[in-house]
């Protein structure tokens, strides 16, 4: 039995409580990600996609899959790893081209993570930027000023060619943030 089958059997379903509705506008730049059925329309370029779910729901698998595809398209990607949990061997196994991946280990400092992500954003040119908030304590998340969200939101409006993922803990009531 393959691990993929195993995962399909054992892990609980992924939930994506706050993926923004895909607007029917010419600005929308869909990017099909075959193999990832939860994104039927692909991911919006220049948009923020939030992936949330409980432990073992396949959050990391989904991220690595997206990274693998992006690096296969010769894009340079970045992972801002708040809790220092990224596993390079898993990424390699998922066919992520590690040579075009920037990994920022933030040592459990959420503020550093946000600032690093902002800097990467300013730099521009990334295919995918992943901001990983998994296992960050909710009270830390609550302390993040809303201004960051607005800053990121502004970026997504001007359609920079990157993806923006926020991976985070499930919340009792997911905040639905629409950036468009």
């Amino acid at each position: 039995m393959s691990v993929g089958e195993y995962m399909a059997n054992i892990t609980r379903p992924l939930s994506f409580p706050s993926i923004p509705d895909l607007p029917e506008s010419p600005d929308f730049a869909p990017l099909p990600t075959p193999g990832l059925p939860v994104f039927p329309h692909g991911l919006r370029r220049g948009g923020i996609t939030e992936i949330a779910g409980p432990r073992c729901s396949g959050r990391m698998a989904a991220i690595l899959h997206i990274l693998a595809q992006a690096t296969a398209r010769a894009e340079v990607c970045a992972v801002v790893d708040t809790n220092d949990q990224f596993h390079p061997a898993s990424a390699y196994a998922a066919r992520v081209n590690l040579a075009s991946l920037v990994w920022v280990r933030c040592g459990k400092n959420a503020e550093h993570a946000l600032r690093a992500a902002d800097l990467l954003l300013h730099s521009g040119g990334f295919g995918v930027v992943v901001l990983d908030f998994c296992d960050v304590k909710p009270r830390v998340l609550d302390r993040i000023p809303i201004s960051y969200c607005i800053v990121f939101g502004e970026r997504s409006k001007i359609r920079l060619p990157f993806f923006w993922f926020v991976v985070r803990l499930p919340r009792p009531k997911p905040r639905l943030i629409r950036w468009s």
Binding site: V3, L64, H65, F86, C134
Partner: peptide, 8 residues
């Protein structure tokens, strides 16, 4: 394109 079991 494969989806694999990944670790944190």
């Amino acid at each position: 394109q494969i989806l694999r079991l990944s670790m944190r």
